[in-house]
């Protein structure tokens, strides 16, 4: 049985979304970082860095949320979330790395400023710099979406899932993407898929409680 470690207020939600898309049986092991459950000896044996999420699937044990999604798509989503053609697969890998290396530092930077800090502590220069760097990334996505409406071909793939689950941080930190209408439409369709909605519905009450603690 596939096991996914990490709570609903961690990057584990990205993998829960993927597992739901694939319709796989899995066990979700929620680790509470407030209780340091990610530092227990049992968990450190699985992930020496104590980071979440981690996926265990038979002989394969791996970390890195976007890497886990690529693995799951390759193993269980052939011809669907993982396309059959070389060009489609190349784009799935490309966009997943683009999400992790280009988009996430900016998007997560906004989470740190807007959600983890109170207003007087925010770094407005950094916020402005990040906004300036985010524009060209959304321009690039607009060009990619022009062709077909999805990032890797004519259908929804791991490329779309891995970019949308990172773009979530722009959304949650109130970044206005209406200036990039193709991206906005794509994001709403992608992020609103029922597999993700199911996970987000489970997450909402836990996240609300966490935000109360952070901002309270």
């Amino acid at each position: 049985m596939i096991k996914l470690y990490g709570s609903l207020v961690s990057r584990a939600t990205r993998n829960l979304w993927m597992l739901e898309e694939l319709g796989l049986d899995y066990e979700h092991v929620s680790l509470d970082w407030a209780k340091q459950e990610n530092r227990s000896a049992a968990y450190l044996a699985i992930n020496p860095a104590g980071k979440v999420p981690t996926l265990a699937d038979g002989d394969a044990t791996l970390s890195e949320s976007l890497g886990i999604n690529l693995y799951l798509a390759q193993k269980y989503g052939q011809g669907g979330l993982w396309p059959d053609d070389d060009a489609g697969r190349a784009r799935c890998v490309q966009w997943s790395f683009w999400a992790g290396a280009e988009l996430e530092p900016l998007a997560y930077g906004r989470i740190r400023e807007f959600l983890f800090k109170k207003e007087p502590d925010r770094d407005q220069t950094l916020i402005n710099d990040m906004a300036e760097q985010t524009g060209p990334l959304l321009d690039l996505m607009t060009l990619a979406l022009d062709d077909n409406g999805f990032l890797a071909g004519d259908t929804f793939t791991v490329a779309d899932l891995n970019v949308a689950c990172v773009m979530e941080y722009l959304d949650r930190s109130g970044f206005d993407i209406s200036g990039w209408p193709k991206v906005e439409t794509w994001y709403k369709t992608t992020y609103g898929r029922s597999a993700n909605q199911k996970i987000q519905d489970q997450r909402a009450p836990i996240a609300a409680e966490m935000m109360k603690r952070l901002q309270g």
């Binding site: 699937d57 394969a60 976007l66 390759q74 193993k75 997943s96 992790g100 290396a101 996430e104 530092p105």
Partner: peptide, 20 residues
Amino acid sequence: AAGQAACGQWTMFSATEVEP
């Protein structure tokens, strides 16, 4: 599968944890 998983994981680790 375990070897392929390692390739994906470590490459992502390189891009997001080390290279920045």
